[in-house]
Design a protein around this nucleic acid. Structure first.
Lengths: 229, 229
DNA sequence: CGCGTCGTATGACGGCCGTCATGGTTCGCC
DNA sequence: GGCGAACCATGACGGCCGTCATACGACGCG
């Protein structure tokens, strides 16, 4: 744990637009913490008594289903807030968070966070719109997950990744997000075998190639078609 | 449309704890609107430029899947806020809302709502915790919907209803919420035929009886068992 | 090298459930 | 009563996909 300099705070989307003196107040109560790949940041049911934001790295937020499987709710990256959902009302976290790679997080304990909120209405507005966006996103995922074939869900997942972080390279569009077959399955709410089957077929049909550091989408048209049906 | 008296405002959970003068400020900008059963209150994609709360009646919030089916996100009753998700950032509504019965709603347009928020920090806190709760609920539903058998989802749905609004009567626990087979299907993300099949079987096996004004849960143990597997 | 672990891959089998088709019942309305 | 519109009900069929079993390559480790 260490005290964050101002340029680190400016990397958090929520804090970026605040005036400088507000960020210095934040710096006084925030602490940096580093995690290795695979570290648990918090677990479903933990008391939500801390606000967390990602400075560098990638974090997977997931929830266990009653049947014991796990489903990935979202994958967050640098600048995203993490504990905003629960820090209010001291609610327990509704899901767990685990790092996908070495990650640096900024942490503010609940009392300090509340004080900051009182001092800065812009922070509250930022939180509100963040929650709103996340709610809309979850709503969308809920509608997508139900009643569609697994292949359709896979196509939509990759189309979303393609549009969000894809960049032209290697004879197609490169998505620099390495995900295991298991993680793909958890993102789409299916089993690892089905995930492997679909990815193998797409590999053969030159729709999508798996590489060490991500995926290359070669035939976007095929994905568009699969996402429609 | 008419101006709401104070006792109506007190029926909205968000406003109940506010001081009287805050509610009189609200009364000056709020308007009452009545709907018949089956009226659309807003539609997915509409500009979210209004805050709505339910005074009396019941409202179904649903979203259409890409395949054209619809899935029910939640059923709201008296006291619940409706447009809170979207009124921030003027985002379009992520879902649609339709009345299940004759319903009375309170409406506040966006500029007035923002003014109220500025004047009353307690309102902002209330909104934040409301959003947080809804987010947790959606997260839970997402985990429940994926990878579980339909019968399991049905069991969990009725157990939830039973605990929330059930009351001992008619030889079991009575849930006073009439829902069509189609609506049950939309709540669990399945088709109307499967919904009918499950309900028919439970009717025969004396697990659950459908009545004109709701359901009577007779064998709760059977539901517990079905919800586990 | 031998071994265990992890991720990937492939096949067989079976059941849940989505789809289609048909028909009954209730209710409002002319 | 006649009619149409919802809603509820039931059966047949088929395919997706979850489950189980097996196998293979990569990698770390003693």
């Amino acid at each position: 744990m260490s005290v964050p300099p101002d340029d680190v705070l400016r990397r958090i989307a929520l804090f970026r637009r605040l005036p400088v003196d507000a960020r210095t107040r934040i710096a006084q109560v925030a602490r940096l913490k580093t995690y290795e790949r695979g570290d648990l940041i918090f677990t479903e049911g933990d008391p939500g008594d801390v606000f967390i934001a990602i400075v560098t790295g990638r974090v997977k937020v997931f929830k266990s289903t009653p049947a014991g499987k796990e489903i990935i709710l979202e994958i967050f990256g640098a600048g995203d807030p993490l504990g905003a959902v629960a820090v209010y009302e001291g609610m327990p976290f509704p899901a767990s968070a685990i790092t996908l790679e070495a990650t640096e997080c900024l942490r503010i304990d609940q009392p300090s966070f509340f004080k900051l909120l009182e001092q800065d209405p812009a922070l509250v507005r930022g939180l509100l719109s963040g929650l709103t966006l996340r709610l809309a996103e979850l709503t969308r995922r809920l509608a997508e997950l139900t009643g569609a074939r697994v292949e359709t869900r896979f196509a939509r997942l990759f189309l979303k990744l393609c549009d969000q972080i894809g960049q032209p390279a290697r004879g197609g569009v490169f998505v620099g997000m390495p995900l295991s077959r298991q993680e793909l399955a958890d993102l789409t709410g299916t089993t690892i075998e089905t995930a492997i089957r679909i990815m193998s077929r797409w590999q053969k049909e030159d729709v999508l190639h798996t590489e060490k550091d991500g995926f290359v989408i070669i035939d976007r048209g095929a994905l568009d078609e699969a996402s429609a049906s």
